[in-house]
Amino acid sequence: MSLYNKSREDAHPSRDGHLLKRNTNHKAKTLKNYTPYLLCLPAILYLAIFIGYPLIQAFVLAFTKPSVGFTLDNLKSVLTSQGFKEALGNTLLISVIVIPLQIVLALFLSLFVNTRFKGHMFLIYVITIPLALSEITAGLMSYSIFSSMGFLNKLLINLNLIDKPIYFFGYTYKLREFIVIILSELWRATPLVFVILLAGLQSIDKEYIEAAEVDGATWWEKLTKIIIPLLQPSLLSALLLRTTFAFQVFGNIWILVGRDIPVLAGEAYYWQTEIRNANIASAYAIIIAILTIIFAFLYIKTLESSYLES
């Protein structure tokens, strides 16, 4: 942070030639003031065109109808529809179940790995594999266990515990489908939380923990009185980031159960690709956007405050 322009200019006066050149060349100096803006301009412009403009268009689509113009009908029909209520309910329910479990699981995983036993690097690699997989791939991998001829059924049949396969998928088995989705989401997205928490743990000064050990703190005391408070910024950012992503959950669920268990993003996809109604699809999209923006804003605010603290 100390490597800014100012310190560099301060360092220059010893080099006489440079100083002279710089003072006489006003044009170069004003150009220099613009340089950071010029460097940022392409990226900002691109984001304005490809995110800003379509975002506005998403609102326009959501609030208009072909041949009618401005209308609240799309939003009204979405908000009052059974599909929306179910989708919102499922999206929230999945988040409320999955996210706390992920935080706890990821916390223990990262604490465990951070003891740095022999082979912990390999374990880190294995835990992070799901991070590299697409939502669909993760869904297909859960399917290898739970499909009617999947591993679980084969195992139970061969152990003579059941005679016919247990069906985990199908409209009549919604609860089972829901459980599979929860497990699949836990498998897929816990590594994301894990990585954030592990990075946080690695930046904690070992001296705090050692001091507590000298004072005879138990494992639980160390965890709740030292590690968790010090890890709070990482925990918070993991929580908020996971929450914003949870509103966008789509591929995993779509590939496993389709619309048996509707979620917000799945409905947007369905209305766009199957019904070909861009207005309703956009209404769903902006609902996702609004939810995301609220949590993203909270997320950035916490990042900012933890950044200011450090």
Binding site: Y53, A58, F247, F250, A278, I288, T292, A296
Partner: peptide, 22 residues
Amino acid sequence: RLLILLTRTFPLMVVAVPLLMV
């Protein structure tokens, strides 16, 4: 920096439909 952070968490699915229209 803040703007870029915000777009980082921004879902592509929100802009996908309007982008298709464009």
